[in-house]
Design a protein around this nucleic acid. Structure first.
Length: 269
DNA sequence: ACTGGTTCCTGCGAGC
DNA sequence: TGCTCGCAGGAACCAG
């Protein structure tokens, strides 16, 4: 499930394939889900950026193409033309010197082409918090926000205190910081540990291409998996020993999300 | 302004 | 082997 590390990996791999190219065709059959994509025709892709879990293709004439991969979205690129469409292909970008395929088995992801930075109707994007791997992710404002939360994990998932944290990286970061997912009103020391943990977890995950959970979930655009799952301490490890203390990792549901934690390292407050 | 619940969608793995 | 069934979850949306 693409979170910041998976989306950033995707962005980096798409950059040399897309930037500078002109969009010759956009092929799909779902104009409700992939909105206004005909506006891309004939436009050059000037840059590909990322904001939280959103990809933003910057096009000629002041247009942005917003892409959200949601649960199962992803890209496939090849050096040669595709001999057959990749499995679960939903959209294909035809460029003057190649093609890029967008796949999404569950069809939760969406595309929308709109005038530059006109994101008001996408509330989560418009109100996105600071990027955790940039200097803008300052400690003091994060501590101030965390001092008010009622439950820390749902707060992280809101994208407001910090951008790009999803279910996997919330669980992993809270384990590293030794904070229970339902902890409220974090102390300055707790928030500092969490701030450090988010930066470290995200940095290490980006370095290895993100997390691939199973064959059908996220893959890098070249078809390779991401290797961060090998470093997961708690996520998808219920019943296995905590790497820090050896206690058995537990899983339960918090705000409708599978939540993994170590009951000894992350005691319930 | 918040919180909490529902919805979208479908492949897959577990269980029988 | 083949079937059913519940799980996976980001974020838009809606109700309270």
């Amino acid at each position: 499930m693409p979170e910041l590390p998976e989306v950033e990996t995707t962005r980096r791999m798409l950059e040399p394939v897309l930037v500078g190219r002109v969009v010759r065709d956009v092929i799909h059959t779902d104009p409700e889900r992939y909105r206004n994509t005909t506006a891309m025709l004939g436009k050059q892709i000037r840059a590909i950026e990322r904001r939280g879990k959103y990809l933003i293709l910057r096009l000629d004439d002041g247009l942005d193409c917003i892409v959200h991969l949601k649960m199962t979205g992803g890209f496939r690129t090849t050096e040669l033309p595709f001999l057959e469409p990749p499995r679960f292909e939903r959209l294909r970008l035809v460029l003057h010197d190649g093609e890029v395929s967008y796949v999404d088995s569950r069809r939760f992801g969406f595309w929308e082409v709109l005038p530059r930075n006109e994101w008001a109707h996408l509330g989560t994007l418009a109100k996105m918090g600071p990027e955790p791997l940039e200097d803008e992710f300052a400690l003091e404002p994060f501590q101030a926000a965390m001092a008010k939360v009622s439950k820390v994990k749902p707060a992280l998932l809101s994208q407001k205190p910090v951008a790009g944290v999803g279910n996997i990286y919330a669980d992993e970061s809270l384990w590293h910081a030794q904070i229970h997912p339902e902890a409220s009103k974090l102390s300055a020391a707790q928030s500092k540990r969490l701030h450090t943990a988010i930066r470290e977890v995200m940095t290490r995950a980006v370095a290895v291409g993100g997390s691939t959970l199973s064959d059908n979930s996220y893959q890098q655009p070249n078809g390779e998996p991401g290797y961060f799952k090998l470093q997961h301490a708690v996520y998808d490890r219920a019943g296995q020993p905590c790497p820090r203390c050896g206690s058995t990792i537990e899983k339960y549901f918090l705000a409708q999300r599978g939540t993994h934690f170590c009951p000894r390292c992350q005691p319930k407050p």
